[in-house]
Simulated assay, not measured.
Amino acid sequence: MRHQSVRRRLAATLALLVAAAGLAFAAPAHAAPGDTGDDGEGGSKSLIQQLEAASRGYVQARDALAASKTRQAQLTARLKQLDAELAPRQAAVDEIVAEAYMSGRLGPMSALLNAGSGAGFLDRAEMLETVGVKQQAAVTDLRAVRDQQAAAKLAIDATIRDQQKQVNVMAKRKVQAETALKAANAGQDDPQPSDGGSSKSAAKFQGGSGMVDDPTSGGRITQRMLFAMRQAQADGFTHYVHCWREQNSGEHPKGRACDFAADKGGFGGVATGASKTYGTNLANYFINNSSRLGVLYVIWFKRIWLPSSGWKAYTRGNGDPSSDHTNHVHLSVI
């Protein structure tokens, strides 16, 4: 009887353990991005590649356009300076010509015939030589300014042509991104009243293109990605972050993407209340500082923000909070 009682107690304990295990399996912890079969960026490999190429091309053309406009402004200022210098140089030439005329711009024989003495001839020849040297120098100086002026005008014309080229590239890249989204049955315009919720300004990235250790994993990320993460954290966005991971496509294995949890402690369920507000503000922080940080795209709450197109619908996940990006903000940088 005693052995049977022990067996019953053991059986009851085992049953409780099985039941507890059953409860645990029935309510699992929320899967982290990348653990639900979508590579963690909510789209097929081909879609992610198209979006990456389109946004990268757009950002590069946009930055080239900005640099070209800066160069045009510099050239225009230089041309204005040369225009201001041209008038006094022309006046100097005119003055020397008048001086030569008043002094009698004569050849050596005429100077000798009109000179009262040998000393007078030498004095006159020396004066004429001085005037000639001054005139030659002034003419050379004037010609140099005019050449610089012409070169500046040509350079301005070239920058304007380059700007038009970049504008055309930007337009093509925008079409490429939006066509890829439409082909995936996504990409409808999806602005929301919460857009622009954060006005904090990040510093401009001035680093290089090398890789550094990722403080959120055992992998490596780009200097730019680390800079963007540190800037966000310095501006108060201090919830859980995870960056590098192995996957078949996207920016995470390249070290150019991070996932920023809406909840403070990690990737939870669908963000609500303060957690959703945090995610919205963080997404808008990256958008408002996209040029300074080199943002490629932002994904948040079933939407994707592209530099070329703004917010677009992006419902290519598996219906869980991580693949739908309703529990974290995804950031990719160039």
Results as ranks from 00 to 15, higher is better:
271 A>W: 02
9 R>T: 13
73 A>F: 01
168 N>P: 10
221 I>A: 06
53 A>E: 01
28 P>A: 10
301 F>G: 13
84 A>I: 09
179 T>E: 09
40 G>V: 03
333 V>S: 00
29 A>W: 08
155 A>L: 06
238 T>E: 02
24 A>S: 14
170 M>Y: 01
265 G>A: 15
5 S>W: 02
178 E>D: 10
106 L>S: 15
97 V>R: 12
104 G>L: 00
178 E>C: 02
119 A>M: 11
315 T>P: 03
73 A>R: 13
300 W>G: 00
202 A>G: 05
33 P>G: 01
69 K>Q: 15
19 A>R: 14
299 I>K: 09
197 G>Y: 08
331 L>D: 02
308 S>P: 02
268 G>F: 02
26 A>H: 11
258 C>V: 10
265 G>M: 14
37 G>V: 10
126 E>K: 14
220 R>F: 03
5 S>G: 04
84 A>D: 05
174 K>H: 07
61 A>Y: 04
268 G>E: 03
135 Q>W: 06
269 G>E: 00
197 G>T: 12
94 D>C: 13
132 G>I: 06
255 G>H: 00
159 T>E: 02
227 F>T: 09
243 C>T: 04
189 D>W: 04
77 A>M: 05
140 T>R: 14
88 P>E: 06
303 R>T: 03
109 M>C: 08
103 S>H: 13
29 A>P: 07
232 A>R: 06
221 I>H: 03
203 A>W: 01
37 G>R: 12
248 N>R: 13
233 Q>A: 10
271 A>P: 00
10 L>C: 12
175 V>Y: 11
174 K>S: 08
201 S>G: 13
26 A>D: 06
189 D>N: 08
79 L>R: 14
299 I>N: 07
179 T>D: 11
170 M>Q: 04
218 G>T: 08
176 Q>S: 10
1 M>A: 14
94 D>V: 15
318 N>E: 12
229 M>F: 01
274 A>T: 13
243 C>A: 07
29 A>N: 12
222 T>C: 04
1 M>V: 08
28 P>K: 11
58 Y>H: 10
177 A>Y: 04
87 A>K: 12
17 L>Q: 12
213 D>H: 15
243 C>R: 07
240 Y>A: 04
212 V>A: 05
164 Q>M: 09
19 A>W: 10
323 S>V: 00
324 D>E: 06
27 A>H: 14
211 M>A: 14
290 S>D: 11
193 P>L: 08
74 Q>A: 07
311 W>F: 09
274 A>N: 11
85 E>H: 08
158 A>K: 07
278 Y>P: 05
96 I>E: 09
219 G>K: 00
257 A>K: 02
247 Q>W: 13
176 Q>A: 07
76 T>W: 02
318 N>Q: 14
274 A>L: 10
282 L>R: 07
66 A>E: 14
173 R>Y: 11
224 R>K: 00
45 K>S: 12
151 A>C: 04
92 A>G: 09
156 I>Y: 05
218 G>M: 02
108 P>E: 12
195 D>P: 04
128 L>H: 12
213 D>W: 13
268 G>L: 04
265 G>S: 15
250 G>W: 01
232 A>Q: 05
86 L>Y: 09
264 K>G: 07
284 N>T: 08
